[in-house]
Design a protein around this nucleic acid. Structure first.
Length: 388
RNA sequence: GGGUAGGUAGCAGAGCGGUCAAAUGCAUCAGACUGUAAAUCUGACGCCCUACGGGCUACGGGGGUUCGAAUCCCUCCCUACCCA
C-alpha cells in the first residue's frame, strides 16, 4: 500500500507499507549487495538512521547461494532467509541482478549472452555456467525472503541504437509478464496474502528515448505492479543528468504507485529526482565513495538551529564534498562536518580520519561510510519535510 | 689487520658502454567512482622553460678511458657480512 501527498513543487511525500514495516517516502536504501553494507554491522547501519537495504539476487545466488541462506534458523522474528542470515530485521529490497549480468556481459562479451529465455552467464567466481530466467529471478527472491522484489529486466547502454533500445523494451515487457506470472504462482504456493506478500516492482527501460520510456511504463502498468523502477542509467555518456527522461518516465508511471529510481545517485541527483516525482532511491555512492575517502558535507552550517531545510526546487549548492586523504587535512583537527551528528563527527578529527586512511585501517571506511549514510538520511528527512 | 659483496631518485630495488631522467614496487600528490567483479581504478612524481617540444643537473667523492659512461679503469670515502 502506498499513500502519498504531492507537494507544490512536484515532489511527493508518503508512506509505503511493506510486510516488514512502513517506510516514509522519499527514502534511500544503501546497497548491501552481498548481504552486507561493506564494513558496517547492522547496528552501525541502524545508527545512521537507515531503515531499509538493497541486497542483490545475482550476487547472493552465486555466493553463498540461496540454499545456504535458507538454512539459517534463528530464535527471532525472522527465523529464516536473508534477514536472519545477515541479522537485519528491517525491510529488504532485492534487486533482480539484471543490471549486474548486463554489466558483466557489456564489459566482457564472452562472459555470457542475453536471449529471450533469460540471461546466460559464467560465474566470475569459478567460471561455471548459469541461466537466470525471469521465473528463476523471482523464485530466488522469494527464497531470499526479501520484502520488495524486482523483475528481471534488460538494460542497455544509453548510447545504444534506437533499434536496440526498442528490443530491450520489448524484452523487458515480455519478461515482466513472466515475472508477474511467477510471482502469482509463488504467492499462491506459499499462501501469501496482501499482508504477507513481498511487493513486486517492474522496471522501466527505454534509454534516452522518451517515447520508449512511456511505452515501457504503460506496458508495465497494464500488467500491474506494486511499484515501478527507473532502469538503465539516468545520466548520458557525458554524465549529464537526464532531467527530461526522468520527468517523463515518472509522469508515465501510475500516480499512486511508488517510483523507484534504481542506482540514483549523488545527493543532488536524488534531490532533483525527488522533485520530479521519484520516491525511492538506492546507490553505492555514499558507501563506496566513503571508503575511497570522499565525504559529503553540508554547505550551509548556518542553517538556523541546525534544522536542515530544503526547498522543493533544488539548490545545487546545498552540499560539497572533500577528499579527506588530501594533504590539506593533515593537520586539520576540526570535525569532518561540525553540523553532522554521526560518530565520526562527534568523536574524531579530520586529521585522525586521514591518518586512518593512510594506514589503511578498516575503521576509516567504516566511519566514512557511516558519515555519508548519515548525510543521506538527513537529506531524505529534509526532502520529506521532517524536523531534523 | 685480511677477505668478500655492495654504494642508483623519499625508501626498496632493476639496469652493467649509446634507444637512461633511469624498469618495478612502496611511499607521496591529485583525480574518478551513480540498480557494488570497486579496501578499486586513473594520472603525476629530479629542476626550469614560450612545456604533444626544449634546456639544465643527476646514478657515493675525485680523476681517467671513450665520439659517447649509471654501466670500463684508478683512487678515496662509506656500508654489510666472513676470517683474525
Amino acid at each position: 500500500m502506498f499513500e502519498k501527498t504531492v507537494l507544490p513543487g512536484g515532489g511527493r511525500i508518503g508512506k509505503l507499507t511493506t510486510r516488514r514495516g512502513v517506510l516514509a517516502t522519499p527514502f534511500f536504501m544503501p546497497d548491501a549487495t552481498r548481504a552486507s553494507v561493506r564494513g558496517l554491522s547492522t547496528s552501525d547501519i541502524r545508527e545512521t538512521g537507515v531503515e531499509a537495504l538493497v541486497v542483490n539476487t545475482y550476487h547472493l545466488y552465486l555466493q553463498p547461494g540461496t540454499e545456504l541462506i535458507q538454512k539459517t534458523r534463528k530464535e527471532s522474528a525472522d527465523p529464516e532467509g536473508v534477514h536472519a542470515f545477515m541479522g537485519w530485521d528491517g525491510p529488504l529490497l532485492s534487486d533482480s541482478g539484471g543490471y549486474q549480468i548486463y554489466s558483466l556481459i557489456h564489459k566482457h562479451a564472452d562472459m555470457g549472452r542475453i536471449t529471450d529465455e533469460g540471461a546466460e552467464f559464467r560465474s566470475v567466481l569459478d567460471g561455471s555456467r548459469h541461466l537466470i530466467t525471469p521465473e528463476r529471478a523471482i523464485a530466488i527472491q522469494f527464497d531470499l525472503g526479501t520484502d520488495m522484489i524486482v523483475c528481471l529486466d534488460d538494460p542497455r547502454p544509453n548510447d545504444a541504437s534506437r533499434e536496440e533500445i526498442v528490443k530491450a523494451v520489448d524484452r523487458t515487457l515480455r519478461w515482466a509478464e513472466r515475472c508477474r506470472a511467477e510471482y502469482d504462482r509463488q504467492c499462491e504456493a506459499r499462501g501469501f496474502g496482501d499482508a504477507t506478500r513481498p511487493l513486486l516492482f517492474g522496471v522501466v527501460q527505454g534509454g534516452m528515448h522518451v517515447d520508449e520510456r512511456r511505452r515501457c511504463a504503460a506496458g508495465l502498468a497494464a500488467i500491474g505492479f506494486d511499484g515501478y523502477g527507473f532502469g538503465g542509467r539516468h545520466v548520458d555518456e557525458e554524465g549529464n543528468f537526464l532531467a527530461d527522461i526522468l520527468a517523463a518516465t515518472a509522469a508515465a508511471i501510475p500516480e499512486n504507485s511508488p517510483r523507484f529510481a534504481l542506482g540514483i545517485g549523488t545527493p543532488s541527483d536524488i534531490a532533483r529526482c525527488h522533485a520530479l516525482g521519484w520516491d525511492m532511491f538506492d546507490c553505492v555512492i555514499p558507501t563506496r565513495e566513503g571508503r575511497h575517502g570522499r565525504l559529503f558535507l553540508w554547505a550551509k552550517p548556518q542553517i538556523p538551529n541546525s534544522k536542515l531545510q530544503f526547498p522543493n526546487q533544488v539548490d545545487p549548492d546545498f552540499y560539497r564534498t572533500i577528499n579527506i586523504q588530501n594533504e590539506q587535512f593533515k593537520e586539520d583537527f576540526s570535525p569532518v562536518d561540525p553540523i553532522c551528528d554521526c560518530e565520526l563527527c562527534r568523536q574524531y578529527t579530520r586529521a585522525y580520519l586521514k591518518h586512518l586512511f593512510k594506514v589503511a585501517d578498516p575503521l576509516a571506511g567504516r566511519l566514512a561510510s557511516m558519515h555519508n549514510l548519515r548525510f543521506y538520511m538527513r537529506l531524505m528527512k529534509a526532502l520529506r519535510g521532517e524536523e531534523d
